[in-house]
Structures are given as C-alpha cells and as structure tokens.
C-alpha cells in the first residue's frame, strides 16, 4: 500500500500498538537533525562568559558549576530525544505529550540558574506552558471528537474538513505556540537565553523550531483545502 502525505511518500512505519510512527523524507531529516544535535550536546563542554567588571579594568568569568552542568545536560538530552520523537510520531495525542515534555524540560534547563531575571522569565514561560496545555489537549480532543480518530495516518485518508476540525487545529497551533514560545510570545524565551550554557540553550531553541515546523505539517494534513 502506497500512502503519500503532502505529496511525499512514506518511507516506513514503526507500529507501537495504536501509536504508529511514520517517516517521510521530511520527518526523517528532522529526526536525524534532532538526534545529531543531541549527540553533539551530550559530548560538549559549556562556554565561559566573560563580562567586564564594574568600576575596575578587570574581567569576570561566569562559568556553569559542575553539578548544575550535569543536571542541565541530562535535561538537554531528554529534550533532544523528545524532539526527535515528536518529529516522527503519527499520533496526535502522542505529539501533544511530546510537546508537553519538551515544555517542562525547557523550564528545567533554565530553572537551575542563579540570575533572578532569568528565573523570572523561566517562571513566566512556565505559566504560559501551563495555560498552553489546555488548548493543546482541547484541540486534540476536538479533532478526536470530530473525526473519531487521533491517528494522523487515518486522518490523512479522510476526505473532508469540518469547521470543528479547523477550530481544533487552530487551538492546537496556539497550544504549541505557547508551549514553545514563538512570536508574539517570544519575549519570555529570549530573556532566558542570557544565561551561560550555550549547548543546553541550543536544544531549547532547536526543539521549539522543529516542533513548529512539524505542527505546520500536521495542520496541513488535518485541514484539506479541497
């Protein structure tokens, strides 16, 4: 059986019961990218930030402490794996759970720092992530109610789009936007990046961008213009 999604053919599927992972060249590329970045992060050290000292000519080094480093690396690896999973999952609800996992791990990566400003934006980001879990799950459940299935492959073979599915997918998008912090909700996220530890911050950015690209694919699958 040849199934094509958005014009590209499915290379393979991994069935885990009702949850089926599928891969097209697009999914595969993003999956590989997420894994490669995760690997690089796992073997990297952190950078040292140099700041000018106030009132003298000296410099000040800001480093990531050993314990904090290990903790953040652990969370970063989890986040990378979750991103990779979200790229290939073929189940709407599974996808939302991956997004939630990414959201909470992102909060954790910056939550372990000492700067008050960064902690403040981590907290605000956490608030958005909490609010966003509502549209995320509601969107998925509205699509379930309208179509009777949450498998993306099954939805792909449907021929109609009802207003309810459209509403559900808009909510889904809003949920992902909140959970990953894209425009116009980017401010909380950008502030978090002022802390040292760039390899771990990378994964925050990577996960949110890849998730957004993936959610666009899912929305296009759900809503058929024809």
């Amino acid at each position: 059986m040849v199934v094509s999604i958005l014009g590209s053919q499915i290379i393979g599927i991994i069935p885990l019961g009702d949850i089926v992972f599928y891969m097209t060249s697009f999914n595969l590329f993003m999956f590989a990218a997420a894994l490669v970045f995760t690997f690089i992060i796992a073997i990297s050290k952190t950078e040292t930030q140099i700041e000018a000292e106030f009132g003298s000519l000296g410099d000040r080094e800001i480093k990531v402490a050993k314990k904090e480093f290990k903790f953040r690396r652990f969370l970063a690896i989890i986040c990378g794996l979750a991103t990779a999973g979200a790229m290939v999952t073929g189940d709407l609800f599974d996808f939302t759970l991956f997004v939630c996992l990414i959201g909470i791990v992102n909060i954790g990566i910056v939550g372990a720092v000492k700067q008050v400003d960064v902690l403040d934006s981590a907290f605000q980001y956490g608030l958005i992530a909490m609010i966003a879990s509502t549209p995320l799950f509601v969107g998925a459940s509205l699509i379930l109610a309208a179509t009777g299935t949450i498998s993306i492959l099954a939805i792909n073979s449907l021929t109609y789009t009802t207003p309810m599915m459209l509403f559900g997918s808009i909510l889904l998008f809003l949920g992902v936007a909140g959970e990953t912090g894209v425009a116009p909700f980017f401010a909380t996220k950008a502030e978090m990046f002022r802390t040292p530890g760039s390899p771990f911050l990378l994964i925050i950015h990577l996960s949110s961008l890849l998730i957004i690209v993936r959610v666009i694919e899912i929305l296009l699958i759900i809503n058929k213009p024809f």
Binding site: L6, S8, S25, V213, I216
Partner: peptide, 18 residues
Amino acid sequence: SLLLIFAIYTIQKIGEHN
C-alpha cells in the same frame, strides 16, 4: 519537498543562534 527546505531554513536559524 518544499517543506524540507523550510525545515532546513529553521535549522539554519539554530546554527546561527548557537
């Protein structure tokens, strides 16, 4: 796939950033 090119574009953003 056009989608793939856009995925590449977003990863380029990440590279730039880091």
